[in-house]
Amino acid sequence: MPEKNIDFGRFGARGIKGSDAVARKLDELAGGIATPVTAKRGWMARLHYLTKSTQTLKAAQDAGLTVTHRTLKAWLEGKRRPSKTSLERIDQAYRTVRRHNVARHLLRRLNRDGRGTRVEIHPLNQSQVPQQLQRVVEYRTMNVRRWDRIVGSWAAGDHQGLDAAWQDTIVDLGSQWGQYEYVTNVGFAA
């Protein structure tokens, strides 16, 4: 059943890949700066986060923030404003560094000393699919005890690894697990 949805949405079904829904939820749990990067307060807060230590500055440079120290200093002093492209790089570097920094904490919270976390899987939306082509797909819950590969792939920005880890996890749903490759939402709390 996995990867059989090559032509997903052909008959009107709507949803997103389950691994993308998990990544969104992990991003939400990771939190961060709420002010948009386009506002001065937003990009200044991100720059302060990225430059608070030499380790975070190196991680930001590795994540794609490649500007001179002179430019960075001018931005931090408020003498210059980053270009639109630089703002995108600042935001991307911030998200990458933030994921790396909170991954260990999230992993500990989600694994809960082997007890795991309850996950709610909301099936795909079939309201636009003709009645005779609709599948019986229901809301499901499961307890995920091993989050290591999922959180590790998310923190590294490895979309294929996250997708593979999520598919290996939903196999625990039984013979119908392929019906949950695409979903409307995946919810869990940590």
Rank of each mutant, 00 (worst) to 15 (best):
M1T: 13
N5T: 08
I6P: 08
I6M: 10
D7S: 14
F8N: 03
G9R: 02
G9F: 06
G12E: 06
R14M: 12
S19D: 04
D20T: 08
A23D: 04
K25A: 15
L29A: 06
L29Y: 02
A30G: 10
A30S: 13
G32K: 01
V37Q: 08
A39F: 03
R41M: 13
R46D: 11
K52Y: 12
S53P: 01
A60D: 07
Q61R: 10
Q61V: 07
D62H: 13
D62R: 12
A63L: 06
A63R: 05
G64R: 04
L65S: 03
L65D: 07
T68F: 13
T68D: 11
T68R: 08
H69Y: 15
R70A: 10
T71K: 08
W75C: 06
W75K: 02
G78L: 13
K84M: 14
S86L: 14
E88Y: 04
R89V: 08
Q92C: 10
Y94D: 06
V97A: 02
V97D: 02
V97Q: 00
H100W: 09
L106H: 01
L107D: 01
L107A: 08
R108A: 12
N111L: 13
R112M: 07
R112T: 04
R112F: 03
G116K: 00
G116C: 06
R118S: 09
R118H: 09
V119R: 01
V119K: 00
L124V: 11
N125A: 05
N125R: 07
N125W: 03
V129Y: 01
Q132T: 15
R135E: 09
Y139A: 13
R140Y: 01
R140K: 10
M142V: 04
V144P: 00
R145W: 07
R146Q: 11
R149D: 09
I150P: 00
V151P: 02
G152Y: 01
S153L: 07
S153E: 04
L162S: 04
D163V: 07
A164C: 13
A164L: 11
A165I: 01
A165G: 01
W166P: 00
D168E: 15
D168I: 03
T169K: 05
T169M: 12
I170K: 07
D172V: 08
L173C: 04
G174V: 04
G174D: 01
G174C: 12
S175R: 07
Q176N: 10
G178D: 05
G178F: 03
Q179C: 14
E181I: 03
Y182S: 12
T184P: 07
N185T: 12
G187I: 12
F188M: 03
A189F: 12
A189Y: 06
